[in-house]
Design a binder for these strands. Structure first.
Lengths: 263, 263
DNA sequence: CTAATAGTGTCTATAAGACACTATATA
DNA sequence: TATATAGTGTCTTATAGACACTATTAG
């Protein structure tokens, strides 16, 4: 009556062809950095700006055939291997693309709308990563420069973007904005010790708000439970001004994700 | 030299077998409801509790063979079809499982760790849904009762759960907690008009906090920009007490997702 | 001295929390 | 009358924001 005696045998005889399966499972990464700029917008001196790294798809693929969405700008990414998660694939691809590991990487969405990729049923896991500018500049210099570039957000949205990457980038920015205000990811854009105005400029680069720009920000910083001034009161820096500035650091917490609601 | 002249031809000849592809793409749903209870925990009278609907996997499958993870309790779900997104599949499955549509449904994670399903490389999209108790009771009564049940969260974690559903349920609860405090999903657990104490009990069922339990909650409610008392001052209800209580409703907003930070 | 960045002091309005109090119904 | 839920008043303390002010350096 029953063909198989137990679960083991059933698994050995399991045939996934009973179901229609996807044609591809991929990970894409919106790689962000913050660069120094000189800009004055109605009395406020903007010193840092958020940028995204995009790659230009080749016109021809490895076999010399016309490439899908060739010539358009796209998020770096690639196919997930069966022995890894989408998150691990993103980590691997980030390392391949920029040579860095150990930086902030976060999954924020799945893009699986039928027809999003003309090659078939291809599912993309979207991640955003925060990489110090230094690493990206090395990467871009190493390349022949034409096909990897850093863009401001405005510039990126004026490009001809591949697939549904416009929507993915929009969501990536929404996520990074929210995380900047509700968690302590801001630290990923800063060196291990930083001045109040450096933190202020990083926040303003991603999310402009009067309360962040105001002088009051200096007082607020002293009351935040996850930021402390470096112990020795004489440790200061003059890298941003003639008057030496106090240095602060983020206190490591178990619960990084819910630092929340502070800025 | 080049086999194909243009992108069209390349797509027509695209062969997904160049890459290893997943063996299955599924959607699972943590279906939550809030039921009335009578319980007293150190001076605070708990009147509502969060519950989750789980199904017990059959011992034998449709062909009479031993079923994978048979006998264990699991989240309802199923395979995504190639003409729909994971979200649409979840909507369809929710409707098949409970007969309801138009309720709150949200994607919150992807589970794709190799080995999570012994049948192969199977990716699950996790969603949570909020369904009024009434519908679930109908569903459970219609079934032969043994294989669909409502559990409190504590009860659920004491069951033998299939696959990685323990981890999925844990994350579902984290997400619903956060959303209850930062958005106005609370309304999904309430009827269209409600009393202050009903809202209070719904919030307490998901996230206990002194400030919610306190009398001050009554004053707070009047200042929330997304809640209003129903227009006619005489419209009251006695369903919870002898003294008639004022009825309130949620004001519909475009930006439901960022009602944020109010409770 | 000036210019530039780094901070502080002070005032006001509002919100959060503790907790005692009053109100309206039924039985 | 007692009891249960509904709701208010008052006080204290903490915080947010506006905005004017002082501090420290280089040149």
């Amino acid at each position: 009556m029953s063909k198989y005696q137990n679960e083991e045998e059933v698994i050995l005889n399991y045939n996934s062809n009973k179901y229609i399966t996807p044609d591809g499972y991929t990970s894409d990464i919106a790689i962000f950095t913050i660069t120094n700029v000189e800009e004055e917008i109605n009395n406020y001196k903007k010193k840092k700006a958020l940028k995204i790294m995009l790659i230009q798809r080749a016109e021809l693929d490895a076999e010399g055939e016309p490439n899908i969405e060739g010539g358009k700008w796209a998020l770096p990414g690639g196919f997930v291997q069966p022995n890894e998660t989408a998150y691990e694939a993103a980590k691997r691809e980030l390392s391949e693309e920029t040579g860095v590991s150990g930086v902030h990487l976060k999954h924020f969405g799945v893009y699986d709308k039928p027809g999003r990729d003309r090659r078939g049923w291809i599912i993309s896991n979207a991640h955003y990563a925060i990489v110090p500018e230094f690493h990206l500049e090395k990467r871009i210099a190493a390349d022949d420069a034409a096909e990897v570039e850093l863009f401001t957000i405005d510039e990126a949205f004026n490009l001809d973007l591949a697939f549904d990457h416009r929507a993915i980038i929009t969501e990536a920015i929404n996520n990074i904005k929210r995380d900047m205000l509700q968690t302590n990811v801001a630290k990923e854009f800063l060196s291990s010790v930083f001045t109040v105005s450096e933190l202020q400029q990083v926040l303003l680069a991603v999310y402009y708000h009067k309360s962040i720009e105001s002088d009051n920000f200096f007082k607020k910083i002293k009351n935040l439970p996850f930021i402390e001034r470096v112990s020795n009161k004489d440790i200061k820096t003059q890298r941003n001004s003639k008057r030496p500035a106090t240095l602060y650091r983020f206190i490591e917490e178990e619960d990084n994700e819910i630092a929340s609601k502070y800025f």
